[in-house]
Design a protein around this nucleic acid. Structure first.
Length: 405
RNA sequence: GGGGGAAUACUCAAGCGGCCAACGAGGUCAGACUGUAAAUCUGAUGGCCACGCCUUCGCAGGUUCGAAUCCUGCUUCCCCCA
């Protein structure tokens, strides 16, 4: 079912594997594999412990897609068994162990999101519970005996945590072993991961070697920083989800640090090198808008991206009031409220204290005019009024003024 | 089994009897400016129809006119020795 590729094709494959990768262990073995002329089984592990994928994952997914288009077989491992362990990677905290139900729920949203980049029809998707659920304690011990504590402790995240006097659960040592065992189970020829996965993926090589398989080639893709230049992390809220609505996605991308533009362009768009250079040499705002449009177009559609860009320009560059402002209902039946409380009750501010602060700072506008008088009261009525809190929160509401003294 | 540490607001982290709604940093939010939800600068950041009132410093008690700070017990975590 497979036809051998000519040497020229192999060269193209090698370039694809090596382009934008950080580690490639190692090139010689990869060439040997490619020269067999068959599609390689390229493994990629997904950790279903968080419900959505962001553009950081997209870097790796795009690489997989590229390889997929060259005819290689992508094997997506869903780490449903591994997710039960929690995650030892640099979070500095023990990640909570997930229940089966959590994992199942995440799994669906995960594949839906991976579909945005990968052709899942041509992708082999395997859950690692497939083999780990069958593993009994004796087998587990055998697996655990394949590596030493010293080898485990080599891992930098463990090192750091030990230095910082942070706890490490015994079970966390199993995590790399499990991931490595996945490679044995699916007979991976190569495994892609973020640079943070290097250690784990190398364990796969070790284990495959021990059971007499040809050790997989390990290659890693760069981890991109978040919108603010710090490490991309959910808790920093500096990531862009693959499923963010187009407008939000575009806006978030526009808040990217200037310094990260080159990298994001290179890793997240299909733009040819030359065109990329040209765009980056131009006006920074234009370049960023182009980047945002490219990514939004890829994940949504070119039309949606255009609209998002137009809406963004209108609202933030030209400072127009956006369309589609919701008409909110008067929150407190029949009562009259001071402006700040109204804002709070409408959900435009977190708390009434928050609303007061915002008002004091001139962030609350009524029909476009900042209102600083915190004594001003309103009641429900017939007049439609535009409320604005900061630059991004808008609402319309029907009111009648009671006092303005 | 023995010994030593630690628990403070979103996060990190000061405070060690009154001047503490609690230093500082980050984050977040807002304002100004602009090239944008970049950068920079400034300010705010427990709650409350609020010039005052209420609730916070792991939990529960206690000492005191007065506690995040002292005492007792409990819980959780970390380290070292065995």
């Amino acid at each position: 079912m497979t036809t051998a590729k000519p040497a020229q094709g192999r060269q193209a494959d090698l370039v694809a594997f090596a382009r934008n990768t950080v580690d490639l262990i190692n090139e010689k073995e990869l060439l040997e594999l490619l020269s067999e002329g068959r599609p390689l089984r390229v493994k990629f592990g997904m950790d279903p412990s968080s419900p959505d994928l962001h553009v950081g994952h997209m870097v790796q997914l795009l690489k997989l897609r590229e390889l997929q288009e060259l005819g290689h077989q992508i094997v997506l491992i869903v780490g449903d068994a591994t997710a039960m362990v929690g995650d030892p990677t640099g979070k500095n905290k023990l990640r909570p162990q997930l229940s089966r139900e959590d994992v199942e729920r995440n799994l669906e949203t995960y594949t839906d999101q991976a579909r945005l980049v990968l052709d899942l029809e041509r992708t082999e998707i395997r859950r690692n519970s497939e083999w780990f659920d069958k593993m009994d304690f004796t087998e587990l011990l055998k697996l655990a005996s394949r590596m030493t504590v010293a080898q485990m402790v080599e891992r930098d995240t463990f090192q750091k945590r030990m230095k910082a006097n942070e706890p490490i659960g015994i079970h966390e040592f199993l995590y790399p072993l499990m991931q490595g065992w996945d490679s044995v189970q699916v007979r991976a020829d190569a495994e892609l991961g973020g640079t943070d996965q290097l250690f784990n993926n190398l364990v796969g090589r070790t284990l495959q070697g021990q059971v007499g398989q040809r050790p997989q080639v390990v290659f890693t893709g760069p981890l991109i920083n978040g919108l603010d230049g710090r490490k991309m992390s959910k808790s920093y809220e500096n990531s862009v989800s693959l499923t963010d609505p187009a407008n939000e996605m575009f806006g978030k991308l526009m808040s990217l640090d200037d310094e990260s533009m080159e990298e994001w362009f290179r890793l997240l768009t299909q733009l040819p090198d030359e065109e990329r250079q040209t765009v980056l040499a131009g006006h920074p705002r234009e370049a960023k808008a182009r980047l945002a449009e490219e990514i939004t177009a890829f994940l949504h559609s070119p039309d949606a991206a255009k609209e998002a860009r137009a809406a963004f320009d209108s609202q933030f560059r030209d400072k127009n009031v956006p369309e589609d402002i919701p008409l909110l209902e008067w929150p407190a039946q029949g009562e009259e409220l001071p402006l700040f409380l109204l804002v709070a009750k409408l959900g435009l501010a977190q708390t009434s204290s928050d609303a007061r602060r915002l008002q004091k700072q001139g962030a609350i506008r009524v029909n476009g005019e900042p209102e600083l008088n915190d004594k001003r009261r309103f009641a429900t009525g017939e007049t439609e009024v535009l409320l604005q809190v900061g630059k991004r929160r808008f609402a319309r509401v029907l009111i009648s003024e009671v006092t303005s003294s």
